[in-house]
């Protein structure tokens, strides 16, 4: 922890030094103190919390919908290996499409509201989650499945009592990847078409008004939010999947 703090403090000191010496134009690199001041101003005088709330709302609704579809579907096709061979190519193809590319299509379909942004987050994350889950489910130990079958478990019981739990470690990895993807998609779509609230549109506003400290503050804020989401997931994972690294 101390080592991590030291590296962050060193980075800030180096940043301050670079801006003090004016080696880099302040238009491109704002001083840390100006960034902190700007952050304080944004928190006090603007709707920053509403921006954060709207961005998080889009991410969570999109990712949650993707989990609700991708995990059960991935488990089903991963369990039935013959089905997985049919879907593998399609999933790999969908996973390879940059989600932002379908944003214009989402705008045409759902209009300029939140639905189009959430739709793109859902599209980008569901392919990732289905793929991760199906991969995990198709690699569940045959011994574990056979032992349950011999003990009298039916197909659906094997699916939700064995395959699901045995795949949980990889499903959580998929959720973490999907959330990172969700943050990127949500913010980029906010930047593409103006929306009243959202961190992406706030960054774009700052760029249009040449407000470099605000851009830096918002970039750091998004980084902190992403890190907090990731750490929270890691914590949940360590509590939920207690057998990880122990078998």
């Amino acid at each position: 922890m101390i080592k991590k703090l030291i590296s962050i403090v060193c980075l800030i000191l180096l940043w301050q030094l670079l801006t003090e010496t004016k080696w880099i134009n302040p238009m491109f690199l704002a001083a840390p103190i100006d960034v902190i001041h700007k952050g304080y101003q944004l928190i006090r005088e603007s709707d920053l919390f509403l921006d954060i709330l709207h961005t998080l709302k889009r991410i969570f609704i999109g990712v949650l919908s993707a989990i609700l579809l991708g995990v059960p579907f991935g488990l089903l096709i991963g369990f039935r290996k013959s089905a997985y061979t049919y879907f593998e190519g399609v999933l790999d193809f969908l996973r390879s499409i940059p989600p932002i590319l379908v944003f214009p299509l989402a705008l045409l379909t759902f209009g300029r509201g939140d639905a189009s942004r959430i739709g793109v987050v859902f599209f980008g994350c569901s392919a990732i989650l289905t793929f991760h889950t199906a991969q995990a489910a198709s690699h569940v130990s045959e011994v574990r499945i056979n032992s349950a079958r011999i003990l009298g478990a039916k197909g659906y019981q094997i699916l939700y009592r064995i395959i699901f739990f045995d795949s949980l470690i990889d499903i959580m990895v998929g959720i973490r990847v999907a959330l990172s993807m969700g943050i990127i998609i949500s913010i980029v779509t906010e930047m593409l078409i103006g929306t009243k609230y959202g961190l992406g549109s706030r960054v774009l506003d700052a760029q249009i008004s040449y407000d470099t400290p605000a851009i830096y503050f918002l970039v750091i804020l998004v980084g902190i939010l992403g890190m907090m989401i990731n750490k929270s997931l890691q914590y949940i994972e360590s509590k939920l999947i207690h057998w990880k690294d122990k078998i």
Partner: peptide
């Protein structure tokens, strides 16, 4: 039938 596998770690459910 009770079937005891060689790989006991894989036949039990760690969760």
């Amino acid at each position: 039938i009770s079937y005891i596998f060689q790989e006991y770690k894989r036949s039990l459910y760690p969760w």
